[in-house]
Design a binder for these strands. Structure first.
Lengths: 340, 340
DNA sequence: CTCCGCTTTGGAAGCGTTTCCGGAGGTCCA
DNA sequence: TGGACCTCCGGAAACGCTTCCAAAGCGGAG
């Protein structure tokens, strides 16, 4: 039992390599101005002793934490989980640890931003699908914490996301193209941030598409509900109870569309013969449900956000943001309306 | 601009409170043998200076990291994400930070366990739905890292999970009770750990239930596929191509069942009139899909795992594990067979 | 041949806590 | 009244690293 295994430190490595601690530190940290041979000797010694630098000591002495925080409003939603997946893979490959923070409502968020930077726990922060206001941002930058946004429509920060307006247009234009003129919309809002419409672009797209097609906008055809499948089902019920129900429905997200489909099926309506349904996201189950949708590369967005963090940490300037493309995926839930 | 705000340390607090650093440290850490008045004075000083102890320094000097790691085989699957959600909420309430590690195949896992404990990055580790072998466990315990398992069938470690055998029986017994005698099973395996059947209990349940009901077991009625919706669809196709297809299907998880449903619908079969389908998990979309399933409290399991970590960290002994109950949820995807 | 400047290395001063050790004062009982 | 013991507190030594400052070695320009 190598009882020493837990006590070896950089001094041991330095001794074994026949150099000073200063040199050992430089070699291990890949600093310049270390002779190749020396560096190799140090690395070999470290390997032999299976030595790893103590993150705490390193950080205390001025190094980086090698940790990045991720702030998520809803951990268990597919969208965020998939994003997190991509993000984590990139960060892990770069030997960075991922600290996960769930931040629900505005109060949570406020507390979070107040406490986190206190003693730098992370080198960078990735904020998924929620806003960051100026004071918060300033505070973080002051403490040397970089910040990247993803999956939201945050304009003022380095950010990777889709173009919600374009995505929405792909969905609604598809319905218009099929000949629908009475098109319902199920918009969603985040229950945790009720005052902040989750995806305003998707709503604007609806109006723009109808206007462009010369279709008058009937406010009764828009229903806004908190995100979620059952709420989507409720929304659809409301739409069905209209004197003149829509012949097609545009849901802001696939999960909501699934709910709508349930309602329609229970009402005995056939999809797409009696009514068309289109969603956004391309949730993995959308394929199984045969749902027409607008696909967005979710995991990829997480990866890109990770890359962004990496370049930020390495001092490179990043562009102001990346917009990833979306793509209409036509499946069996949409068809021309049966009657004019 | 309080330029000093980022430089205040415990010495400042101690000075302001008129005590030594030793006392300040004890007061802040809630140690005994500190006069109440003194403690109050220190706390007030800390508050006034909005001081927070440096985790790095604290750890370096012998404290805890106040971090716990979570190891997950698949971040974006609902099951793991939901578990993570519950876990994070408990841990965050206890002021512990959550480090997220995605570990895919066996190689990943090996590397992970080799590297992690090197320099204690965490006080405890929660392993979600994957095995931990004895050497790994020993190593961790040696380094003072506690370990808790969840969502798996790991018997030898403090662990929270459902009883897979019981859950499977609830599903299959239900089909038997309805009068089905020709029951198919879609079993899954984890693509990342092909040699380690994901949920052996669910398979055993099938055999036990049929045997108890005096139904002979036809190996052709069992199809094993990698986890996932599309694979579930494939499996169902294979089952349908049998000379004598089943009148009911038991899928090891809801996502897989969704795939099966798709295949059945495409084949023009009605559910439940022509064929019954039952899953396990009670995925949020199962309700929308009207799928009969066996519900398990996923988020709750995460919370319980979190509590377990908490008591482990506070030195309390935990029982060897917690088994949470499952519950059959009968929806519209199951019914008696149409013909004997 | 000397001086300048560059690369490479070592010494040592922190970084901000925790905790061991010891001392001061007070209480309680014989 | 004199220990024995306990509570409360301060001094100072770690903890393991990074980096500033200097110094040593060496090549080439003048």
């Amino acid at each position: 039992m190598p009882a020493s295994s837990s006590k070896i430190n950089m001094a041991d490595v330095a001794r074994r390599a026949g150099v000073s601690m200063a040199t050992a530190s430089r070699a291990l940290a890949n600093h310049p101005h270390v002779a190749a041979a020396t560096r190799a000797r140090v690395l070999a010694a470290a390997e032999a002793l299976s030595y790893v630098v103590s993150p705490e000591a390193s950080r205390l002495a001025g190094g980086a934490t090698d940790r990045v925080g991720v702030v998520v409003p809803h951990i268990s939603r597919w969208f965020f989980a998939a994003m997190l997946d991509g993000l984590e893979s990139v960060l892990r490959d770069a030997d960075l640890d991922v600290l996960l923070y769930h931040v629900g409502d505005a109060t949570d968020r406020h507390n979070f931003f107040r406490r986190l930077p206190a003693r730098r726990k992370v080198d960078a922060l990735v904020v998924l699908g929620m806003p960051v206001d100026d004071p918060e941002r300033e505070r973080l930058e002051l403490m040397g914490v970089h910040i990247v946004a993803a999956g939201g429509q945050i304009e003022r920060y380095p950010c990777v996301s889709i173009d919600d307006l374009a995505a929405g247009r792909q969905a609604v234009d598809h319905l218009v193209f099929l000949g629908h003129r009475r098109i319902g919309m199920i918009a969603t809002l985040d229950p945790a941030q009720p005052d902040w419409p989750a995806t305003p672009g998707r709503g604007r797209a609806y109006h723009a598409a109808l206007t462009d097609a010369g279709i008058p906008i009937d406010p009764a055809l828009t229903v806004t509900v908190p995100w979620g499948g059952v709420n989507g089902a409720d929304a659809m019920s409301r739409l069905l109870s209209l004197r003149e129900p829509p012949t097609a429905v545009y849901a802001h997200s696939d999960e909501v569309a699934f709910g709508a489909v349930r309602t329609l099926r229970r009402a005995g309506l056939r999809i797409p013969e009696d009514i068309s349904v289109v969603g956004i996201d391309d949730h993995p189950l959308a394929e199984l449900a045969d749902l027409t949708t607008v696909a967005q590369p979710v995991r990829r967005q997480g990866e890109l956000a990770g890359r962004m963090v990496l370049s930020l940490l390495s001092g490179e300037a990043t562009g102001d943001g990346i917009t990833v493309p979306t793509r209409l995926v036509i499946r069996g839930s949409t068809a021309p309306p049966s009657r004019g």
